[in-house]
Every structure is written in structure tokens, then in C-alpha cells.
Design a protein around this nucleic acid. Structure first.
Lengths: 188, 188
DNA sequence: TGAGCCATGTAAACGGTTACATGATTCC
DNA sequence: GGAATCATGTAACCGTTTACATGGCTCA
């Protein structure tokens, strides 16, 4: 057994995607973009080194899988890789969900603006939120990785509904705020 | 006018808090913890260097304001500091709101668990979400900075309601999911 | 008198993004 | 033929967090 390895969320994302049927680093990233990307973004510059690290510690195996002249690596979960994934899923320790919202930081300080500009700000943010929310709904989960379509796999869809719900909740809330501010403007 | 300065969200947070009446770096951080912290977290190790940087570029002024033997710095917005804040608030360019949720990443891969463990996971996440949501509701905004209580200042409260809404939306959603999973378990 | 808060800073480590470099395959 | 996509990797940079260091004030 290899030396101790420090497993981070990105490690589990990689292990999990392999379990769902992704083979190459490129495929993992593509699947992540279409699914986990909205609540755990990543990049190829993270995925490739992470795969190498996981292989060094025996959690995945790599074999060459060229496609014509183009080289390609295919990875597979080992038993200890799957065990690590399960242990994480069962572990009671969690990092809290965190938000980083530049738009809301702006809105927080919006009192510095004259009222008509406040309204314009809220309108812009609402339009943006709406656009980003609908962008999330596009993209077919099943096309991301074969495993997403199998019968025993339901949580990817469930979690996507959660993410969509969050974004549309924000968009709706901004819409309501806009309506209220417009109402007040009219009263002046 | 000083050389070009690259203003980041943290810069505007600092400028905005100064505008709302915070004076010292410590006070800015404290106010942030009680307000913007849930959607733009920061630390003292960011605030102090940022204040120095803003002063170097003439967006804030610093004067010593000792309290007994304990040294303290009091900062104030300059005209160009206030102008920079307003320009940011009016600017059409925004960075999208982003989410980073380790709990949801777990849930995404929960199909790897046997059904009873799936339910246990959802229960744990729901309890956590509930605890974090109620933690947000505590803490009096007005005690954070004097400016939060003034009549022309309404957006800090509005944005807090948005944040609370998001977290409780997630908690409710998890509660619903838990109920559905329990229903299915009973059917087996 | 001791715990907790007020107050200011620096240094190192960490996680993540962007840019760079390279080349094959597929599809219009 | 050219654009988009598949595919793999490295290097540099950037923003943020954690740990370290120091010391006065307040209140029970």
C-alpha cells in the first residue's frame, strides 16, 4: 500500500466520475462541465495531475488506449479507490457549502446609488441570473457519461434539480425585488 | 493621481464598509463577518494589506486613532475612493455568482451507496443545512456597523434576506428529498 | 487574574485558474 | 481545407486561508 495521500473534493470528483464510466481525463472534465460544474467547477489543469497522483497511490490504474495515432489514457478505479470513495460518502465530516457572489456584494452596497440607478442595477442582475439559470438547464446529462443513463443512477439528476432550483430561486427573488422597487418609484 | 490600481471585489468590500461607517481594518472584518461573510468571505490577512494598497493609491486616507495605549488606525474614503465604488456599482460587467458545495458533490455520487446509507447521507446533509441556515439568521446587522441602522440604508437587510432564502431553500429541498426517500424505503 | 476581545500586521502554504505548448481526429 | 473537438500535459500566476507574532483593553 502506498504512502498516505491527502484526498480533496477534486479527488473524489475524479474517482466518482470514473465510477460512473468516464475513462480519460478529458472525458472526466467534460462530464464535470455538464454536471458537477455548477457547484464544483474544475479545469483540465487540475484533473490531469490529480489522476497521476491517484495512480501513484494505487487508487486508480492507467493503461494506454490510443485512438488511431492520437494517444489516450484510460483509467479505472481500483478496489482501494472505490473504498476511498465509499468512505468519503459515509464520513460524517463535511465542508459547508459556500457561495461567492460578486453581484450580491454589489447589491449589498447599492444604497450608495441614486434610486433610479438602484433599479437599473437590480434589473441587470435579474437578467444575468435568468440567463445563467437557463444556461444550466441546457445540456443533456445522459450525453455526459454513459453511466448517467443507467437505471441505478438517479442522484446526478436529483442534484441537478437542486442546482436549477437554487438558481431560479435567486432569479425569482430578484424579479420580485425589481417589482417592489418599481412600485416605490411610481409612488414618488 | 497615483498609478493604475487593479480593484478586486475585496477592494470594493473594503471601500463599501468604510462608506457605511467602519473605521478600522478590524471593524471592517467584523462587519463583513456579520453581513457579507455569507456570500463573500474574507480574512484579516486580506483586509489589512488591501487597506494599505488602497491608501497608496489615494482611494482612502489613514490617520492614527489610538485607544489608550492600544494603537489603532482610522480610515476614510477619499473622493476618488467613493467615485471608484460608484463606478463599480454602475458598471455593466459582473462576475457570475458561484457555488462550491462539497455536500452536494457527495450527494451527486450517492448512487454508489446502498439505499439505507443514501438516506442517512441525506439526513446528515439536511441537518447540517438547517444548522447553517439558522446560524445565518442570528447576529444583529445593526450592531455590525453604525451605518447599517441609518434610514437610507436598506440593501444590507435586503441582501441578507436573499442569503437566508437561499440557505433555507436548500434545507427545505433536502427535507423533501428525505421524505421521498423514506417513502420509497417503506415500500420495499 | 484570567479569558476573551480589540487591534495590526507578516509569512507560508494551498487550491485553483489562465496561459502555453503540441498534435490528431472529425465533421462541415 | 478549415474549424471544432479530442487529448495530454506544464508553468506561472493569483486570491485566499492558516499560522505566526505581538500586545493592550475590558469585564466577570
Amino acid at each position: 500500500m502506498a504512502a498516505a495521500i491527502n484526498l480533496k473534493p477534486i479527488s473524489y470528483m475524479v474517482l466518482g466520475m470514473l465510477r460512473l464510466g468516464a475513462k480519460s481525463g478529458y472525458a472526466i472534465k467534460k462530464a464535470a462541465d455538464m454536471s458537477t460544474g455548477s457547484f464544483w467547477p474544475t479545469s483540465l489543469a487540475q484533473v490531469y495531475p490529480e489522476l497521476a497522483r491517484l495512480e501513484q497511490h494505487g487508487l486508480v490504474t492507467r493503461h494506454e488506449d490510443p485512438h488511431g495515432e492520437r494517444k489516450r489514457a484510460a483509467y479505472e478505479l481500483t478496489e482501494s479507490g472505490e473504498a476511498a470513495l465509499l468512505a468519503w460518502l459515509r464520513s460524517p465530516r463535511t465542508t459547508p457549502t459556500q457561495l461567492r457572489s460578486e453581484p450580491m456584494l454589489r447589491l449589498f452596497f447599492a444604497d450608495a446609488l441614486p434610486e433610479e440607478d438602484q433599479l437599473a442595477l437590480v434589473q441587470r442582475l435579474r437578467e444575468r441570473a435568468h440567463r445563467e439559470g437557463s444556461h444550466l438547464q441546457e445540456g443533456d446529462l445522459k450525453s455526459a457519461v454513459g453511466g448517467f443513463g443507467e437505471p441505478g443512477v438517479r442522484f446526478p439528476l436529483i442534484v441537478r434539480l437542486w442546482a436549477e432550483g437554487l438558481f431560479s430561486h435567486s432569479a425569482d427573488w430578484l424579479g420580485q425585488l425589481e417589482a417592489e422597487l418599481e412600485g416605490n418609484e411610481g409612488d414618488d
